[in-house]
């Protein structure tokens, strides 16, 4: 193929990719937005049409007020859940990855296997509930935090480990000769170098935990502890569903993570592809 031809085909490919992205990501979002603007009657048609009247503000107010301001509590719960479990993942993940990457041990292969299993094997709900009950932390926020940490840890470890493997080992050795103990070595020398990966982990896992519907449903049932995703039930009863409110709720709980993603977009890619640390 000649040069002009290949450039044209690349144009075409790029265009096609844009269209696909638009269809897959933007269209659903527009649908959500339209539904959130519609009134109850129009929304019950569940079609992709322009709203005939603007009810966005009143819908938002109604969603926030419903069930005695449950959405507000839910936002607080979700925030605690997200912050605590992501913090846990970052600290534990980085530490495990550091030890696994740097210390030679007979157990390394077993550890690798366990980490990969955590990524591959789907969690079993009933035994997990049983364990939580025995520990007395079933139906508690700390219990759910531990669950989220456990489920997110494998991915986090792998991400950190890949990055730590690019940090020259001499850096550790220099710090050891300078008198640093293991904790100082980790927190003063290694951890500061992981910044870009930490940002990636925070964003990716925050989105995951914040948007998690299934785990709160299984492990933290009950209205008092509801996380944002569970508020979606508020607008769906056995007989009727208030679609406009449901979609307004979806809109409200999607926005924080969307903002986070857009804001850190570039940093995430940086962290995923971060290369060697040069002294």
């Amino acid at each position: 193929m000649n040069k002009a031809g290949s450039r044209a085909s690349r144009y075409w490919l790029g265009g096609a990719a844009l269209v696909v992205t638009a269809v897959v990501f933007v269209v659903p979002f527009i649908f959500i937005l339209f539904m959130a603007i519609k009134d109850r009657k129009q929304s019950s048609l569940l079609d992709f049409s322009l709203p005939t009247s603007n009810n966005l503000i009143s819908n938002i107010v109604e969603v926030i007020k419903s069930r005695d301001y449950m959405l507000v509590t839910a936002f607080i719960n979700s925030t605690i859940l997200t912050v605590a479990s992501v913090a846990g993942m970052v600290v534990l993940g980085a530490m495990v990855a550091f030890v696994r990457q740097r210390r030679y041990s007979r157990w390394n292969r077993l550890v690798d296997l366990l980490v990969l299993s955590g990524l591959i094997i789907p969690p079993a709900v009933v035994p997990t509930i049983w364990v939580l009950q025995k520990l007395g932390i079933f139906r508690t926020l700390p219990g759910l935090i531990l669950i989220e940490i456990a489920f997110g840890l494998s991915f986090t470890i792998l991400l950190f480990q890949a990055f730590i493997s690019t940090i020259p080992k001499e850096l550790d050795e220099a710090a050891i000769l300078d008198g640093a103990g293991p904790f100082r070595l980790f927190f003063r020398v290694i951890f500061p170098l992981l910044k870009s990966v930490v940002v990636t982990v925070i964003v990716v896992q925050s989105v995951f935990v914040f948007n998690d519907f299934v785990n709160p449903l299984y492990f933290l049932p009950g209205d008092d502890n509801a996380t944002v995703q569970l508020t979606l039930f508020n607008f769906k009863s056995q007989f009727t569903t208030e679609w406009n409110l449901l979609f307004t709720d979806i809109l409200l709980i999607t926005v924080p993570m969307l903002v986070l993603f857009i804001f850190f977009n570039r940093k995430i890619v940086e962290g995923m592809t971060a290369g060697a640390v040069k002294g």
Partner: peptide, 29 residues
């Protein structure tokens, strides 16, 4: 243990702490 031997080493790739200033690198120990 290495830190109790009172020995300083210069590495081939220098192994400077990338996130610290030159002054902090030298003063770390």
């Amino acid at each position: 243990s290495p830190k109790d031997r009172d020995i300083a080493m210069v590495f081939q790739n220098y192994a400077l702490y990338p996130h610290m200033s030159v002054g902090d690198n030298m003063g770390f120990a």
